[in-house]
Each structure stands twice: as C-alpha cells, then as structure tokens.
Design a protein around this nucleic acid. Sequence first.
RNA 1: GCCCGGGUGGCGGAAUUGGUAGACGCGACGGACUUAAAAUCCGUUAUUCGAAAGGAUGUGGGGGUUCGAGUCCCCCCCCGGGCACCA
Length: 809
Amino acid sequence: MNEYKFQEIESKWQKYWSDNDSIKCDINSKEKNFYNLCMYPYPSGDLHMGHIRNYTIGDVITRYKIMNGFNVLSPMGWDSFGLPAENAAIKTGIHPKTFTEERIQNMKDQIIRLGSLYEWDREVAAHSMDYYKWTQYIFIKLYKNKLAYKKDAPVNWCGSCKTVLANEQVIEGNCDRCDSIVDQKNLNQWFLKISEYSDELLEGLSQIGDWPENVKAMQQNWIGKSEGAEFSLNIDGTQLSFDVFTTRPDTLFGMTFAVLSPEHPLMKEILTISSNSVELQKYIENAKKKSEFERMSLTKEKTGVDTGLFVINPVNGQPVSLWIADYVLINYGTGAIMAVPGHDQRDYDFAKKYKIEIIQVISDKSRESSIEKEAYVGEGILINSGKFDNLESHTEGSKKIIQFLEENNIGTSKTTFRLRDWLISRQRYWGCPIPLINCEKCGMVPENEKNLPVLLPDIDDYKNTNESPLAKSEEFINTNCPECGSKAIRETDTMDTFVDSSWYFLRFVDSKNKNKPFDAKKVNNWLPVDQYIGGVEHAILHLLYSRFFVKALRDMNYLNFNEPFQNLFSQGMINFGGSKMSKSKGNTVDPESYFATHGADALRLYILFMAPPSDGVEWNDGGIEGTKRFLNKFWENIIILSKLKELDGSNDDESIVRKVNQSINSVSNHLDKFEFNTAVSDLMKLNNDLSDFLKNSENISKNSKDMIIRNICILLFPMAPHIASEIYEDYFNEDLIKTAWPEVDTKNLKDPTYELVIQINGKKRHTRETQIGLEQSEVEEICKVEFDMNLSEFNKIIYIPDKIINFVG
RNA sequence: GCCCGGGUGGCGGAAUUGGUAGACGCGACGGACUUAAAAUCCGUUAUUCGAAAGGAUGUGGGGGUUCGAGUCCCCCCCCGGGCACCA
C-alpha cells in the first residue's frame, strides 16, 4: 500500500460488491427489515448532479443500515416510458425501445460507477412487457371498481406536445415539459378517481411518518379542503334553481347578488328568459374564447352582465339580482356563488364596479370594523342578520344558519375539495396502452386478463396529429370483443407515465412474479417503504398519485397498509451559475468527468459535504478539490500510522483514541439525522487530529493502532466506501461491509480538561484550561488566585459545571 | 393575498437543553520547498481601535424575557418555494 490510485481501487470494489452480491436482502425475513428506496429515474442517458446527490444519500443509508444489522432492500429501476424517447424517434427514426434501452445501460453503468449498491436482480423498467402488463392489469381492476372512467371534459391540451395534460402538469398555464401555452379542449378522456380519496389523502398527511413539512403543506394546498354549506337558490318567478357553495354561511344575510359562471348548465334556460339575452350571449361567447389562464391572470378587473333576473335569499326572502361573470369558475364548487360584497373582496370589487348594494353583516367585537374601503373578511359577530344577530361568526353563527338551511330543506353543510380527478389519457406512442375495447354491442369492455399485455404495436411513423399514433395501426385497433366476440375497436391512448411510477415500489418486492403484479404477503411484509428519497419536484405529482394507488389497491384487497412511504426525504436541487442546471441553458456539469479526475469517493463526499442535503445549493468546483485533498491526506495518515512503532504500555495515544470514540458518537448521531455535511466534517476533523498525533508521536500500542484504523474505516464507509474498503482489507484482510457499526464507549467521551469561560456580567473576560468535574468553590478559587478577582464585589455567581462561571454584580 | 422554508465572515456552511458565535471546507494573503510553476507543508484570515497587551462592535431590523439570546417571546423588513378570482 503506497499510492492512492482511486480509479483502480474504485473499479476493484465495484466489481467485488457485484460479484459477491454484497447487497441482497432476504425477502422472506420478518425481522429488522429496512426498505430503502431512491426514486427511480427517467433514463435520460446520463446521470446529472441531482441523481448523484439522490443516489449518494440513498447509498449512505443503505450501507449504514447494513452495518447496523438491517436486512436492507435497495432496488433500482427505470421510469422508461415517456416523451423524450418518442421525440427522438420522430427525429431519427430509431425505435423508442432501442433508444431507451441504450440509455438505461449507460445510466446503469454510471450508477455502478458511483459506487451505489442496488440489488440489480430486482430491476424493473416501466416500458418492459413484464411490467406494463401489470400496469394494465391494475388499470382494469381500477376500471372494474369504478375508479377509472371515461368522460367528455374540458381538458388541458398542449399543442406542442400534442397531448392532454393532467392539472398537475400545468404550471401557470404552461406545459411543464415544453413551456408552451396550454389550451382548453373538450375531449373524451380517461380519468382516475383520485377525488374519491380526497379526505383520506389529506388526513393521511397527519398520520404519516417523517415527511418534510413543505411537502405535506404542498399536498394540503393541492387537495384544498374547504368546509361550508351548499344550498339552493330559486330564480324568482320560475321553476329554475341552482346550488351555491359557500365557506361563509354566517354572511348569508349580506348576499346582495348571485353570480353564475358563463359555462353554467342553466345558461340555456336563462338566455331564453332573460331580458338582457343579447348582451349575455356576447359575454358568454367572449368568455369561451379566453383560455382559462387568460381569464385568471390577464386582468384582475372583474366583468359581468346582469341577467335582469332575481333570486330569493332563502333566509329573509329578499330578491337579489342574478349576474353572469367569469370570475366564477365552472370547475370549482358548483360554478355559482352567493355574492356577499361586504365580506368578500372579490364580490366587493364587483359590487363597487356595478354599483350593487353592500351590506355589513359581520362586525368585529368592538363594533368598529367598517366596509367603507374594503370588505371585512375577518371574524366577528353577526349584525343585520335578524334572529342570528350577536352570534359569533365562525362558530355559532355558521352553525345556526346551516341548521336553519337544513331544517327548511334549502341546503346542508358541505365539504368541497380543490383536487380534481386525475386525467391519464395521453395521445402519445411511448406509453402503456389503455387496455380497453369498444364494442358496438357491449360498449366499453376491458381486455381479457389472459390476453395482457396489450402490446404496443410497431409503427413506422411516430408523429401524432390530434390522436395517438397507435390509431395508425389497423392491426392494433381492430380486435374482437372479449365479451361477445364481435368486431371491436381498441382504445388508442396511452397512459400518463405517472401511472407506471405509482406502483413500481410494490413490484420491487416481487419483481419476477409471472402470475400477478405482486404477492400480497411479501408486499405487506416490506411496505410501507421505510425510507424514500427523491427530489422535491415530485412533492405533489408522483407522491400524491402513489398514495392514491396504495389506498385504492388496499380497498381492492391487494394490500393491507395505508401509505406507501413511511418516511420521506427530499433533497434540494443543485444549481450552477445561479439557476437550475439544464441542457437547454447549457449550464450542466457532467458528473462522469469527476469519476476520472477526482474519483467517486471524492465526488460523493463533496456532494454530501457541500450543504445540508435538503437545501438547494450552488455547484462549486473548488469544493471537490477539498474532499479529494482530504482523502489523500487520510490515505497518507493511515500509511504513517500503520508503520508507527508498536509499543504496549504507551500512554501517548489516549487522547487520539478518545477522539475516535467521540467521532463514533458524533458521526452516528449525524447520520441518524441525515446531517451528512456535518458527518463529513467530523471525519475531516478526526483526520486533522490524526495528523497532529502522528506529527508528535513515535510509538503507539497495537490495540490503539487497530482501534483507530478499524473505526475510522467504518465511519468513512457509508460515505466513501471504496477507499475505506481498500484500507480495511489491506490492514485487516476482511470485508468491511460485513463489519458491525461500532458502539460508543460512553465512559470515554469526555476530555479530561476543558476551557473554562469566566464571565463578568455576562461578558467573557478570561478563559482557562481547567480540569473537568470541579466544585463551584474550587473554580472560584482559581478565579481568585489566577485572575486576582475580589469575589465579594459580586452579589451573584452562576456556575455551569464544565462550561462557564459568571460573576454578576 | 394565503401556506411552508430561510436570513450567521469574501463564499458553502457549524453551533445538545439558552452557556466561548464563526467548527469543517473553499477562497484569499504570508512563508517553506522549487531555476520557476503546480502539488505539498507551515501560518494568518468576522469587523474595528491599538505597536502590543487588551478593548469595542457583531448572527436581516426594532423591542422584550434572562446572570447570559444566533437559539425563547412580540413587531417589522427581505429572500426562496408552493397555492391563488377556490367562493
């Protein structure tokens, strides 16, 4: 052992871990199981820094848990359906499958080159027949349980990607893939009924294990629960009525108008009876032309048209005018509102503009709140509300008015969610075909399970026009009805790739099962995932969909737990040049080059060291020099230490042995808490201490020498496994991964001396190297003697043993 | 507007329960080695007054609690992220 040849060492150990199945869980074990999962990547071809961070963190956990005696399941796979492969196929003609599998191979090589341990025998890929067969199988189960349905709906259409998008994939009116403006289109599309689980998805967040607060908050926002009342309003002089939803039933006496969304289903009838139908017609046409995004953002200025009709306020019988306005959205609540300008700012703005009456019905307790300049939206007590006057708005007031509505059969209390059903149809080729068949006689029929998978057909032209490229394959479309055998036609849309990733963590447990998607016993034994690790960009989409899948599968008796991921860790993004790394910006840093110049261990250490792992951070080339330097120095130190003369009975090493012990304590604590940056700094400190020791010592006991080398290798192993394994093998001739994580010697943690801080009135005045465990009187004596202090001047002395003494007076 | 995070040297960031603010690393500066450079090694590095000893100031701003506050409480400002005409 002399020179630190990291390239040789790293490839040697990577081969060793693979040849020796160093990571292989006993899937049937019931004890000390630990399912450690990193989000499987889209196979873009190259690892980027985000992957490196993700898989390094995951690997630290894997190795740390193994050494702590856990039976660790650590699988990896590929989210391998999706647009880029298809777009490449359109450009180059290469089949998406070929394209994808080449990229998978390349990325897999890089993951191995990073030194991350995965049980590759369990590898899954969303695009493989073995996998998507079961995606289709689950889809059919969802369909049979009425959790998948097809309907006409206004949907988000990306003209550039030529496909529809889920609500979750529209960011400020733009496509989250290509940034083009998303249009609204009316199309017949497949949906999964995630809304059925709105309440449970929300509730689950408070019962789940350790999840980042921001992720929970984002899901909470997205689900958007609001509680209130729904009641019906009758159009005066007609049989027509419509429902409105409000979270403020307490303000009902303040309703001075009502508003329908221009898309409201009652619009036809209203046009025939309204005295203002020409203008109404114009307004509705106009609203239709604007995209949803335009309606929301272009002008906050509210517009609307008076229908000339009136509705009756059910609590006091007063007629109020009925308006049409596009600030009321058709896809939230009932698409109609009671307008209370006194206590809702939007209604207030509208009322001011169209000179509609504004009544105050809530006042703060001091009765000073005014609605002169703006709506009063706070809590308070009811006024101008008949027999409900003086009740507290948000408690009794709401309750009593809802009670009144219920008693008179006008309305009920009601909870509304923002969460919409999940639109999963995609008019694209490279995805999982939707396994349903349209039969003229039998209607929509699922493909017979025996015939799964419904294979993606080979086609020549991947371009989609307005429908899926699958529609071009006559062979694919034409089939027979599984029910009656007559000629029938297949669905041609493929599924959103988020469907594939909503259950892959289940398949890993039983990835080779030929008869079903997974074995319930195995899945129930291993799930929920003990530790899930991935980027915060999936906070809503993937994590919410997966939670929904698990709940749906549970209700269909496929599994018996409620949440897929017990603990979640979201790593922050790595930026470069002040913004997110992306190929289009040309600001990427290629991790692979560092394998050659600095080595995987140095890269891993740097990525762990650069910042707390949940923070976003700026890439900095100088930093990796630092961790490389540390590894070199560490290597040198071990050489010097191993050659140090052995002399039993020498006491020189007491202090360095204690420092190693302190590091065991500190590194363990930091790893337990995902504080990898400080765990690395602990090791750097220890290495510096070791350097100092080696400079000043000529001999060491054999025991101490072994103890230092053994433990320093163990502590380094989760984070820099190659170099640690090499040194350990060289010195002990053993496989480090089979070594147990050390116990802390709690009796040897404290240094025998400390730096006493002497304060006068809370200000530091002196410090002094002092023995630990002294009585206050002894410390006072030191102050008296050494610093010439007159203790009688002070009227109070505060002594914190082994830390500080503060003289007050 | 609402909901989450944050704000500490030139930079990334450390600081058990309130107890020496700035660990560790990067960068910078000075020195050694070298013909020279790189690498390596040694030292300095919050600001400020001072020749030094030693002071003073300092964790976004302002108040407060405390012997003692980066840490706890109140008010305000700024940055990042999410949601948003959601009734």
